[in-house]
Amino acid sequence: MIAIQKNNTINLARLQSLIALVTLCAIIAILSDKFLTMDNGWNVLRQIAVNVCISVGMTLIVLTAGIDLSVGSVLALCGAITAGLLKNGIKMPSADLFIGFTILGALLAGIIAGALLGWFNGFVITKFKVPPFVATLAMLTIARGLTMLWTQGHPISNLGPAFSVIGTGWFLGIPVPVWIAGMVVLIASFITRQTRLGRYIYAIGGNENAAILSGISINKVKLIVYSIAGALAAVGGIMVTSRLDSAQPNAGTGYELDAIAAVVIGGTSLSGGKGSIGGTVMGAVIIGVLNNGLVLLNVSPFWQQVVKGAVILIAVIIDKGGKKK
């Protein structure tokens, strides 16, 4: 063990998460016979898919030593935009104008809206030097307010069977949301490991001053990263909306915390520069399994929160311990 620690802390973190996950599954499986069924398995994965999308974006941001608190609200707003455009299109009675949206058009509009909201976060952070925590906290409120305005506070429901495929459909025996999350993970993994952008992300988080001197346009990189995170939040929002066949104005409340938890449990350092997409996926799976297990075991929702918080703490403390030695 000690030899492994010295050589590669990231792999060790991954190994620890894996051990934690296996232990967790074993405990739940012993206590509940419903846990290890196919139905439940797909159900858990479907639920995790949304958090994975958001957490992947969050990981990219955290790797640059930033944070995004607005993902939950952006998720709600973009889900609502997609639902609203799909159902009602754009009507302007004064100009006698009506634009209808196909599913694809509505999806694109939602995702572009997410990217723009993320880009705006990045713009405020890079242009006005507002700390990411504050800039995205403001966006959390703004996007939530815009969601309320857009929906008038009411859910937008009955979006049609074709749209609901995204959240509830199957493809080649695997739920569609799992396909989507899987693609997102693969692409993000590729970006972080095999591209210049990925290197720049790690460099900025590792030593921003050195990155500037090395000729990296750190503002550009940050804008891209925040835009990606916004777009991925939108993808999550579309999945949630599709699954429920309804865009809820208060959807995604608190999702940013689940995403940050997944990133942290996955071993990514909040001070930037260290971590991986794979770790985050592991973190998201652990949280998802834990949520599912607690429900299956009929633990009261109040206790569920306590347990979840405790698991986050334990995961991070173990991770820290491993790095210090």
Binding site: A203, N207, N209, A210, L213, G273, K274
Partner: peptide, 9 residues
């Protein structure tokens, strides 16, 4: 250390 290298990499 402050401006030249990314020490952790």
């Amino acid at each position: 250390k402050a401006h030249g290298l990314i020490l952790d990499q």
